[in-house]
Design a protein around this nucleic acid. Structure first.
Lengths: 201, 201
DNA sequence: GGAAAAACCTTCCGAATGGCTTGTTTCTCT
DNA sequence: AGAGAAACAAGCCATTCGGAAGGTTTTTCC
């Protein structure tokens, strides 16, 4: 008993608690949306009391910002499938990255920040940095056949816009199957303008 | 004094009140978003009391549904500019229809309905009808060069998805100028696959 | 002109939310 | 072992929202 355990035991517990809380937040964001994600429900879902949540994240903004950071830190390509073509790479991005609960949650936060001034300013820096990282990532993987790097970035950004727009439409319009059709159609349009860079790693 | 005025005077007043209320709702949706559009604020903005609003629209759902109907009834092409090319027509659709406060408001409602089950079921019928009308409208104005009508509908739907995705990104990413660039780039990609139908009217 | 009805306004209430305070348990350091 | 800090639990409070009840004014019909 007297042997002092690893000095980070409490810290580890804290980190784990925060992680669980963020996970609960993500779940609620996905199925309830931002405005219906209350701190009470987050606490209940995560299995903590309101006070515990209060301790870890003093305000809702803090909670959302932390959750956002967790979502943004998600690796871009979990499956290292090494796509052989642009078409395949873009389709993978849709299946493995965009069309996922995690991206829905991220989407909810972005969507909420659009009209919530405080949240907007709170996370603006992270989002800008994220945007830059995405552009860099795009350029690292793809190149425009025209050789114009800016065009490659534009095309990828347009792709993301399109996919985002698809996510919104989801529940009142077409279904998932129709979406996949649309995604493939778009890829067929864009892919001829892009090439895969030789991965230097 | 005794001359009885038009029997519809009260009705006209009521209609005007409802119109003002819907307009106020639209304004608030645009600048506050759906969840921050409260009945109190709607009443205040429209210049009516809370009870008056309650009289005209018994519930928030009723108010939103009425506002949605007003938004959906908006004519698709206010300016009869008779575009000469597909590019021009699509650009007009962006400038005159999508990139407008009215469409933002519509967007907010669609977005909210995504996670609000009750609102979702309440307006599902209108939205479905709207979707069909949009498809018909698309086919009336455009045709695919391949001759496949389904392809034309797909391309137009994809364009709408893209533009919607652009609307979301707006406040945390690029600015309006950048958006126009993206829109034009998109049009450049899609326009070659479409042709304008001879307007039969 | 007077009654009935519609439109309108004031006021109130229950429920929920976000944030905070107080008290208890668990861990850490010496 | 014991003091102090961190983590956690439970409850409370001010605010706000949506909704409804009651009374008042205006319009319509006879």
């Amino acid at each position: 008993m007297t042997l002092s355990v690893a000095p980070g035991k409490q810290q580890a517990k804290s980190l784990r608690a925060r992680d669980l809380i963020c996970d609960a937040t993500i779940d609620l964001l996905v199925c309830k949306g931002y405005s219906d994600t209350s701190l009470n429900q987050v606490a209940a879902t995560a299995g903590f009391s309101k006070g515990a949540l209060q301790h870890h994240y003093p305000s809702k903004e803090d909670l959302i910002a932390a959750t956002l950071n967790k979502l943004l830190a998600r690796p871009f390509q979990p499956g290292r499938g090494k796509p052989a073509s642009v078409d395949e790479a873009l389709l993978q991005a849709w299946n493995k990255y965009i069309n996922t609960p995690a991206y829905r949650a991220l989407f909810e936060i972005l969507n909420a920040a659009r009209t919530d001034e405080l949240l907007q300013t709170r996370i603006a820096a992270e989002l800008l940095e994220w945007g830059r990282a995405l552009d860099a990532q795009s350029l690292a993987q793809y190149a425009a056949v025209s050789g114009d790097d800016e065009e490659a970035v534009m095309l990828l950004n347009m792709t993301r816009s399109f996919l985002r727009g698809l996510l919104i439409q989801e529940r009142y319009g077409s279904d998932g199957v129709k979406h996949l059709e649309y995604v493939k159609k778009w890829i067929a349009l864009v892919a001829p303008l892009l090439t895969l860079r030789e991965s230097s790693e």
